[in-house]
Design a protein around this nucleic acid. Structure first.
Lengths: 156, 156
DNA sequence: TATTGTTATACTCTATAACTATA
DNA sequence: TATAGTTATAGAGTATAACAATA
């Protein structure tokens, strides 16, 4: 199976050894892959990673306030507003006033929201099972442990 | 050390067990931490993760074309244009026409670009050493191996 | 004064279509 | 025709300041 073509210009391998030494570089690329796959998985539910995360947290913690939800999602409160707007507009959650603190909202899942959430969770489970099929349990646990430990950064 | 205050409302722990079961959730949060830290690290050099990656690749592969650089960085060519624009405007790289193919550019680092690149690499090395100080070599290698393996996604 | 939710805003990254000039 | 680089554009995520209502 020799190739008779006079290879027009054998594209010299790119040397990315320097970049590959940095974990952040690998994290970025890996996350892009996961993100793209997850977006496709959630597409049929008209959810994105952020709306999905918010819906799951509201279903698991009915009555959550937006401030605490934003903290749990590790995003800024202003950025949560549009996410809650979207979930509320679709009738998946409700914003109920808290009698004891009329500043805050108690976010509650609707029956429809709970239903969609359950379906989306199953889809994401299947998505992750496929994506991480090559990892044994120990490696997967190590991965999660390492990523979790990165939460708090003792910056200099 | 008893607390005499009548805890106004003991914020019930948020149950995020469902989300925590998904690796993508941990990847997102971990990447946000790394990204924020890296942005701070590169700030003094007026570089971001993308401009840094591009500069490193051009320094390691002088004469690289934009198409191949975009492929190496795993971004779309249109998005690379502004990155190359910025590096060129700052005098860190040059866009030289390729005599044999006048459509393409040969990206070359300037002496100033090489100098800044060397300094930035050292800063990023220190940044990563600090960020991943808790990981032994084996764990770190496992992490990189797992993240790298995620590149190609056999999507269903 | 402090906090909840909100608006406005800006920057970055990502993705696609369509154009130009070359090949 | 196909490719290299470009422009325009749109969507999404992130971050900060400042405001009204309420505590």
């Amino acid at each position: 199976m020799t190739d008779p073509r006079p290879t027009p210009l054998p594209p010299p391998e790119i040397s990315d050894a320097t970049l590959r030494r940095f974990v952040g570089y690998h994290m970025k690329r890996a996350f892009n892959v996961v993100q793209a796959d997850l977006t496709a998985t959630l597409g049929p539910f008209r959810l994105r990673m952020l709306t999905y995360s918010a819906l799951v947290l509201v279903c698991d913690n009915p009555g959550l306030s937006q401030t605490r939800l934003a903290a749990a999602m590790d995003i800024e409160r202003p950025n949560l507003v549009v996410i809650v707007d979207e979930l509320e507009r679709r009738g998946l959650i409700t914003r109920d006033r808290v009698p004891t603190d009329r500043r805050a909202y108690a976010l509650m899942p609707t029956p429809s929201g709970r239903r969609l959430c359950g379906q989306a969770i199953k889809a994401v489970e299947a998505h992750e099972a496929r994506l991480f099929a090559g990892l044994d349990d120990t490696t997967r646990q190590t991965l999660v442990a390492v990523l979790s430990a990165l939460r708090a950064t003792p910056n200099s």
